[in-house]
């Protein structure tokens, strides 16, 4: 089972790729466990389970023994809150009383819209800037000055100009997402090996054909890297933005639980936000892999 070492982390085939195993029988069981234990994925999973239990135990003990503030809930209470919150996540009893699922969807919607708008602007702009050194030089000062600004700094301006909380949140997400996509698109377009463009020129490929069939696929992995980074930032920023604008959204939900001093719900929220963030990141990592090509 030496091969497991290579596939161990992904765990694919780890547990099942053993040599033809003897038929399970009473006295074979210990051998099967020993076999299983050799698999890296299995040991990692076991360790993970152990860590969760240990953390749970320490936390539970700390709360029961009053080592921490009275406000901190025990993990068992958090679990109970999670069950409570997730039992009926989509109920809607008006402005101030809606299920956690609705808040989450609202945040996701804002992120998706702001992100999509940013991609729709940044990718064409990135091609335009990346393909022309003159434009690149002319635009560079704007990028240099605006990029380091926290997207949240735009929030008051958004509120003043757009006069609408929802649109302001989308605007802030747009600002957060636009820079990584723009910079990675420029990078991707500018770093195409010149030999590909030489091929294109010797074949007399038109400008549009070259963009579509050569520059676009060559830059796509880089563009997707930018999108992945942007999505990560957008998901960080939406929480903060929603805390400030209120209304609906998972960020506001957390803020509201602070007003209620319900820390159990806040912990549930944090786990939920983390999980959604992880799923989004995995999704873009997958897309990134799909468009990557083998340099040969």
């Amino acid at each position: 089972m030496r091969g497991d070492r290579l596939t161990g982390v992904s765990g694919r085939g780890g547990l099942y790729s053993a040599e033809p195993r003897p038929q399970p029988s009473e006295q074979m069981v210990p051998t099967a466990v020993a076999q299983l234990w050799k698999s890296q994925a299995f040991r990692a999973a076991a360790l993970f389970g152990g860590l969760v239990l240990a953390l749970w135990a320490i936390w539970e003990a700390a709360v029961r023994l009053h080592v921490v503030s009275q406000l901190v809930p025990a993990p068992s209470e958090v679990a109970a809150s999670a069950v409570e919150l997730l039992k009926n996540p989509f109920y809607d009893l008006g402005v101030n009383d809606a299920g956690i699922g609705l808040h989450l969807l609202s945040s996701l919607r804002r992120v998706m819209v702001g992100f999509a708008l940013a991609v729709a602007c940044a990718v064409p702009a990135g091609f335009w800037i990346g393909m022309s050194p003159v434009i690149a030089k002319a635009v560079d000062p704007f990028v240099q000055v605006l990029r380091p600004v926290s997207p949240l700094a735009w929030l008051p301006i958004g509120l003043a100009v757009l006069k609408d909380a929802d649109r302001t949140a989308i605007f802030v997400i747009f600002i957060s997402s636009v820079w990584p996509v723009l910079l990675n698109t420029i990078f991707g377009v500018r770093n195409i090996p010149s030999i590909y463009l030489d091929v294109s020129r010797t074949l007399e490929a038109g400008r549009w054909t070259t963009i579509r069939k050569v520059i676009w696929p060559a830059a796509l992995p880089s563009i997707l890297t930018g999108m992945r980074v942007s999505m990560g930032i957008a998901w960080l920023v939406i929480i903060a933005a929603e805390m400030m604008i209120g209304g609906r959204g998972i960020g506001y939900f957390i803020w509201n639980e602070w007003n209620n001093l319900n820390l159990a719900n806040m912990f549930v929220c944090i786990l939920l936000i983390g999980s959604v963030g992880m799923v989004l990141d995995r999704l873009f990592a997958y897309l990134e892999r799909r468009v990557r090509y083998e340099r040969s």
Partner: peptide
């Protein structure tokens, strides 16, 4: 005066597009 299809170029590094 520039590159053109009347000259067929074969590059040392083959220069095939890896995404095709």
């Amino acid at each position: 005066t520039g590159p053109g299809r009347d000259r067929g170029m074969v590059f040392q590094s083959h220069a095939l597009f890896p995404w095709m």
